[in-house]
Design a binder for these strands. Sequence first.
DNA 1: TGTTTATAACCGAACGTTTGGTCTATAAAG
DNA 2: CTTTATAGACCAAACGTTCGGTTATAAACA
Lengths: 175, 175
Amino acid sequence: MLSAVFRLHGLDGTSMQTLAHVTGLSKASLYHHFPGGKDEMAEKVLVEEGRRLQTLVLSPLDGPEPINALFESLKGVAEFYGGDVPQCLMNSIMLGRGQELFRDRIAAVVGIWCQRLAAAYSKAGNSEEEANAWALYALQRLQGALILCRVEKSRQPLDHCLEELHGDVQFLAED
Amino acid sequence: MLSAVFRLHGLDGTSMQTLAHVTGLSKASLYHHFPGGKDEMAEKVLVEEGRRLQTLVLSPLDGPEPINALFESLKGVAEFYGGDVPQCLMNSIMLGRGQELFRDRIAAVVGIWCQRLAAAYSKAGNSEEEANAWALYALQRLQGALILCRVEKSRQPLDHCLEELHGDVQFLAED
DNA sequence: TGTTTATAACCGAACGTTTGGTCTATAAAG
DNA sequence: CTTTATAGACCAAACGTTCGGTTATAAACA
């Protein structure tokens, strides 16, 4: 998959040659589909990743029952960050030139994610303050776990983190 | 600073030209000092960063009084990840070719950090299990906070995270 | 149905630029 | 007068990108 290349090598570390090899197309053909070149390819991949986040992680948060919505969303996260060594595309791609190109959009997505998470948590009976704090906390742990996954070349940190976040929600439900 | 270049652009995104410009030297001079080229420069920077971690973050953990040691170490972390938009060099540099080159060493450093953190926490009166869990938790939150710092272009997430970790330790001390 | 036509997809080869890296010369330091 | 540090010129290779031309697709028409 295209996104895996950018995830593993970042924007600068990914060459058109590699992309051509991965897609099985020639470099020229890639320019036919993406006249904007590498940057446009990265952008398209990023947009698609945003859609995946929407369907797997964000949409489940809209369920009527907030506790279950949070559970479902966490399940979505586990799938969103799939693979043996899960990595975050938005993290990898936000280095060097990628920062200037994509930071704003990524910040917006993260903001929405946080706010939707807080909304569900608040709907489950927490104050807005608490809800916001928990949402930030959850995102932070998630991103940190993903870093540790890359360091340890394993998905154990992510799975463990998701279990604990699940526990947090469960604890809330039992109140 | 050299490390800032790698921190911002990663290994692949950093060119010898950029390094020459930043150091004020010619490329030829850089090859005089670092015959191994870019990779050797990155390695030297990484080693120096490891020393900084040692003195600022790890050494304070050796203090006789574990609670205070943890406080001091957290203070060291705040300095270690300095600047208006703190970023983790070990994270940036561990993409693409950097992963193959440096992952093992970085994993070792993280392992030591975690284990030293757990030791202090355990010495403060926790079971080894609890201590280990807390150490992993702290590292995870830290790394996650650093990601959010890059996304939000601010050091607020890190400072906030450090406050909360400080609170965790304080809570432990009051037991 | 078979032929034409238009369009999209594709690729080999080349473009100019930048890359990591070397060579040679020069000036300063010891 | 040898060693060390520097830089300008230089190189082959790789880079992102463009071009000209070929093939596949399928709609339009005979």
